[in-house]
Amino acid sequence: MSQYTADTIFLCIAIIDFGGIFICIGIGLYLAYAKMEMMLSHLKNCPAIMIRVFLIYTGPWGRLYVLGLIMGLMVIPGGFLRDGGASAEDLKNFPASLKYKLAFLLKTIWGLLVVMCGGAAYATFGRG
């Protein structure tokens, strides 16, 4: 495979990765603005979320931060349950379809981040 072909493949993967990240940010902003009140109403007994709820009034970054906390709570609840930051009853009553969407979004973001780090490693060390 020629260097030109490898660079073209690398460029296509990078463009798709950046596009995917922007799409995930857009989906996250949609969820943060359209579904935040409903998510917070289901997590009203979770101190880890409730002590940071004021951040939703600081703009899009604050809403994304709180959404990230909620996504982390949905994907890895064990740490929150162990230290008393979450309520098992609230997690059980959280809507399953929204829990799936949040978990899928978080795993997609992590996957795109891994691809981006792999692309950076290729750009730094892989070119011969």
Rank of each mutant, 00 (worst) to 15 (best):
D83P: 00
A14V: 05
C12W: 14
G85C: 12
G111W: 05
W110Y: 11
A14W: 08
M36F: 13
V66W: 02
G20N: 00
D17N: 15
I109A: 02
F94K: 07
I21S: 02
A103N: 07
K107D: 00
M1W: 01
L112D: 03
S97Q: 11
A34K: 14
G84K: 07
L31Q: 04
M74I: 14
A48Y: 07
F18Q: 11
A14T: 08
L69Y: 11
I56H: 01
F80H: 12
A6Y: 02
I27Q: 04
I51T: 05
F80L: 11
P95C: 12
Q3K: 05
E37P: 01
L29Q: 10
C12V: 12
Y33M: 05
P47K: 04
M39Q: 06
I21Q: 10
G111S: 09
Y65P: 01
C24W: 02
H42C: 15
F94S: 03
G111Q: 07
C46T: 12
M36T: 06
P77S: 11
L105F: 09
A96Y: 03
F10T: 08
L112Q: 06
G79L: 12
C24Q: 02
V75I: 14
L31H: 10
G59A: 08
M36H: 11
M50Q: 15
T8Y: 11
G128F: 06
G119R: 04
L31K: 01
L113W: 04
G119K: 03
A32E: 02
L73I: 06
L81W: 10
M74E: 08
Y65R: 05
I70F: 09
M1S: 14
F80Q: 01
D83V: 07
K107Y: 06
K35L: 14
F80I: 03
L113D: 09
A88N: 11
W110F: 13
L91F: 06
L11Q: 12
I76R: 15
G20R: 02
I13M: 12
D17E: 13
Y65T: 08
Y57Q: 08
